[in-house]
């Protein structure tokens, strides 16, 4: 049991991050804080992929003349990292769009607070 808990500590922390991020996105009132939550949320998923690629006693996936090509298990799978490079780019793009939307909202309504925003939207 303790092994299960401590052995998977990386995943527990990822889950914790995930929940923190989700909480921020959904329950925070301030749009900027929502976006912070979103970033945390995305990072936790990136961590999840990277953690899944972890392999002890293996090396970076660059052809090593000593190890050779015979024993592929000696290399870390590069795929997850590549995928996450893409995911990071996507995340940056999403944040970019989100922040620009937030800026536009602020220009229109002079607030980033969602409850105030609601009132101003109704009155306009």
């Amino acid at each position: 049991m303790t092994d299960f808990i401590f052995g998977h500590y990386v995943y527990w922390s990822i889950i914790a991050l995930l929940i923190i991020g989700l909480y921020g996105m959904i329950f925070k009132n301030n749009l900027a804080k929502k976006l912070i939550g979103m970033t945390i949320f995305q990072v936790s998923i990136i961590m999840f992929y990277v953690a899944s690629a972890v392999k002890w006693s293996a090396t970076v996936p660059v052809l090593d003349p000593v190890t050779g090509v015979v024993d592929a298990a000696k290399y870390i799978s590069p795929l997850q990292h590549c995928l996450m490079l893409t995911a990071i780019v996507v995340g940056v793009a999403t944040s970019g769009v989100a922040f620009s939307l937030a800026i536009v909202i602020y220009r229109h309504y002079k607030t980033l607070d969602e409850s105030v925003l609601m009132e101003r939207m109704k009155s306009s």
Binding site: L22, F41, F48, V97, A98, L101, V104, I105, S124
Partner: peptide, 26 residues
């Protein structure tokens, strides 16, 4: 005028959706 707010909400929801997809794919 209200469109950016709607878009922002959709962005939050949509990102959750896409990230869930990504998580499942993981």
């Amino acid at each position: 005028k209200q469109a950016p707010v709607a878009a922002f909400r959709y962005l939050i929801m949509g990102t959750i959706g896409a990230s869930f997809y990504l998580l499942g794919l993981g």
